[in-house]
Structure formats: structure tokens, C-alpha cells
Amino acid sequence: MLSNFLIKHIFRQEPEIGIFLGTVKQKGSTIAYVNSANIWRKETLNTKIKSIFTFNWIPSEDLIQTASKETLNQAIYGYETDYNEGLFKINSWHNSQHWNLEDLTEFDKKKSESLDALTILIRTSHRRLTSNSLHISIAKRAEFICVLLHPMVVKIPVTSVIHYVDIHSAFAFNEIRKANFPNADDLISYIYELQFIQQKIALSLHELVYLIDYAEKNKSNSLLIKAELSSISEVETIFAYLKASIEKTIVIIGLTFGIKNLETKKTHKSKIDALIKDIPQRVKELFYYEFVFNFISSESLDSLNNHRTGILHKKGISDLQPHSYLGKKSEENPLKKMFSVIMQQHAINSAVLIGTYAMLTDELVRLVPPDISPFDIPY
């Protein structure tokens, strides 16, 4: 209380200090807001005494930078398992470049702004209530794929992979337009849809964790409670999103290499066969190509469909039917098991998405090489 009083009435400072990431301030720049009182508490005793007697406090730069990085890690970059240090370096560099977004159409701007607004909504939700179990932990599950995030910054910058693969969409859309990429309208539309699906998955997972926690705390001796039924619906919805994510990813790979009309193919296998047939050999030699195609295969989709469509329901062993919850203690129901399955699949889909965007980055670089040396990119 005293700290807040001093900051507001004696030093005339704002309760929060906004710090821009990088060296260039421009629309879309990343900003970290740090609590002024927390900075004040960490100041040295000499600094505090001097500030009080002079009625003037200038926050220590070192403390501000440390606090801003902590804030960014908490909200955007996460932990070591979220590749936080790498993403901090990547985005510090990206936010220190002058962005030219003049090639965006008005519709592109609306799409990117809507994605940005949803990103803020998701981060705000996690500030109020969150769980480490919602982190996809990409550096732990697929560490090798994280190296791709560095060169991608020149065309499709990834801003966060805590809860989903978040990108600087306005910059990415502009790079596609600037390259006069074939089928640019379709490509941007599918990227927009896919990013929106990622955000819906993140929001649904956040809601699912809340419902699981509520059920654990409130079921008591009830046979069945609404939170459990709501959880079942949420799980089924997420499985549908995960399947849609794979399907959109396939189309984006196709558009990247000029393979059209994949969405008109009747079977998943026919789509994959068309991709494999027409993708350039140089792409097939990429170290992550096999990983991407293994996880967009028919077998991977079949596994998702088993949960989504309820093939196992006929045998009466489904984890998504009410009888699996009836009269059981909350710790005995299958929700946590299903959550684990979903998070694993979401993490895999996210790694595949990074690989997909890396392929697109390569094509954009081939069309319009960036005006920088590869050695300038932070690693």
C-alpha cells in the first residue's frame, strides 16, 4: 500500500510502465507492462531514500529490463520447454526491424487485426486463470523443430508457442503479397482460418481445464454433474478442431507448392498422394519433411477420428460417454486421460505447423530474398 501511495502521489508515476521489445516503436510492436510497485520494492535502500527526499524516482533500467523479460516470459514466451530464450531473441530482433506493410489489402488488415485481438483475449484469460499443463512444451516434445523458428523470422515470424503457434500475421500476409505469390488470396485465407482454429483450440483447452478442476472439487457424491457433460462436449469440439487443423495444413502445403484443388479430393489418402507426387525433390530432402508427412498421414487422422466420431462407442468403452462418469469419483473419470491425449496431439499439430510455415518461408525467400545476411538472424 505504501509503495502504491508513493508512486501515485509522491513520484507521480503510472502504476504500470510500458516497455517496448526491440528498438523500433511501430504499430504491432510487442509491449511489456511491468508493475511500478514491484520495481520500487527491488530498488536499493539508497535509491529509495534519495527518491523520497527529492520527490523524484527514476526506475533503474536494469530492474525494468529484468521485470519486462519476466513479464514477457510469463505472458508470451513461457519457460525453457516453450523455447522462451530463443523466441525472446527472435522477437527482440524482429521488433528492432522497420516493418513495411504497404502490400496488405484492407481485408488482410482486418484478418490480422482480428487474430491479434483474439491473441490478447487468450493472454488475458491466462493472466486470470492458467495452468502449466496448458503449455504445449514444444521444445520438450519436438526440440529439433525449434531451430526452424530462427530463419522463419524473415518471412513468417512466430511470436509464441506457449499455447499454440502464434505468428505476426500482418507481417506474414504482407510478405506473401510482396512476393506476388501464386494463389495469394487462397493462401492467406487458409492461414487465417488455420490460425483461428489454433486460437479456438487454445480457448477450448483453457475452458476444459477449468471444467476438469471444477468437477474434481464439486462432484462429491453426485452421480453425474453438468461440468462433466460440458467437458465431454468440449473434448469432442477440440478433436474436431484438431482434425480441421490437419486438413487446413495439408491445403496450405499444397498451395505453397502450387498443388491446387486438394480440398476437392474425396479421401485423405488421395490428398496426401497428390502432395507427395508433386512436391519438389528439394523439399523432400529437408530434415523435417518426413516428420511433417508422417503426422499428416491417414493413420494420424484415423486416430483422431476414432475419438471424434465415436467408433469405439459400439463396444461401450468410449471415454466420451456418460456411463464412464456415472457414479465415479472425479479422479477416476477419463477426463485427465483425454486431456493428455489432446495436448499430445495439439503439440504434434503445432510442430507440424511450424514445419509447414518453414516450407512456405523457403518459397517466399526464393521469390523475394530478404535484404539481410543469414548471419544477422539471431541464433
Results as ranks from 00 to 15, higher is better:
298 S>C: 08
139 A>K: 10
311 I>F: 07
19 I>D: 02
336 K>I: 12
341 V>C: 05
88 F>N: 07
76 I>V: 15
24 V>K: 13
44 T>L: 09
212 I>K: 07
204 S>P: 02
113 E>W: 05
191 I>F: 11
134 L>F: 08
131 S>F: 05
198 Q>M: 13
372 I>V: 13
38 N>A: 11
319 D>N: 10
211 L>P: 02
165 V>D: 09
357 Y>S: 05
138 I>P: 01
163 H>D: 07
168 H>V: 01
265 K>Y: 06
10 I>Y: 00
149 L>W: 00
273 D>Y: 12
318 S>V: 08
299 E>A: 14
334 P>L: 05
136 I>W: 04
126 H>L: 09
140 K>G: 09
343 M>L: 11
98 H>A: 14
272 I>F: 04
297 S>R: 10
256 T>N: 03
310 G>H: 04
84 N>A: 11
252 I>F: 07
133 S>A: 06
74 Q>P: 01
304 L>Y: 03
86 G>T: 08
280 P>H: 05
334 P>D: 10
338 M>W: 01
312 L>I: 12
185 D>T: 11
205 L>K: 06
144 F>T: 15
1 M>K: 09
185 D>G: 10
93 W>Q: 03
2 L>V: 14
134 L>N: 07
5 F>Y: 14
342 I>A: 06
197 I>M: 03
219 K>W: 06
106 E>D: 15
190 Y>A: 03
196 F>C: 13
203 L>F: 05
177 R>N: 11
333 N>P: 04
350 S>H: 05
157 P>V: 08
6 L>A: 08
132 N>M: 05
51 S>V: 00
38 N>D: 13
74 Q>G: 06
298 S>H: 07
354 I>G: 00
190 Y>E: 15
183 N>C: 13
196 F>T: 07
257 F>C: 04
365 V>C: 09
234 E>H: 08
256 T>M: 01
109 K>R: 14
223 L>D: 03
60 S>W: 02
310 G>C: 07
131 S>V: 10
4 N>G: 01
26 Q>G: 07
4 N>M: 03
223 L>W: 10
197 I>K: 01
95 N>I: 15
201 I>F: 05
69 K>I: 01
138 I>T: 04
131 S>C: 14
133 S>N: 06
78 G>P: 02
4 N>V: 07
9 H>T: 08
130 T>Q: 04
341 V>I: 13
153 V>R: 05
51 S>R: 00
13 Q>D: 04
136 I>A: 06
238 I>H: 08
127 R>T: 11
291 F>Y: 13
249 T>C: 05
124 T>R: 15
7 I>Y: 04
206 H>C: 02
13 Q>A: 00
291 F>S: 06
242 L>T: 03
106 E>W: 01
118 L>I: 14
215 A>H: 02
344 Q>C: 14
9 H>W: 03
153 V>A: 03
40 W>M: 09
367 L>H: 05
113 E>S: 14
319 D>Y: 08
317 I>C: 10
327 G>Y: 01
219 K>T: 10
43 E>N: 06
36 S>A: 14
65 Q>P: 11
116 D>Q: 11
106 E>K: 14
309 T>H: 15
123 R>P: 12
162 I>N: 01
100 N>P: 11
98 H>F: 03
217 K>Q: 12
151 P>I: 00
186 D>V: 12
169 S>T: 12
261 N>C: 10
152 M>D: 00
312 L>A: 14
305 N>H: 09
363 E>T: 11
143 E>A: 15
369 P>M: 13
105 T>N: 04
121 L>N: 14
77 Y>T: 01
130 T>N: 14
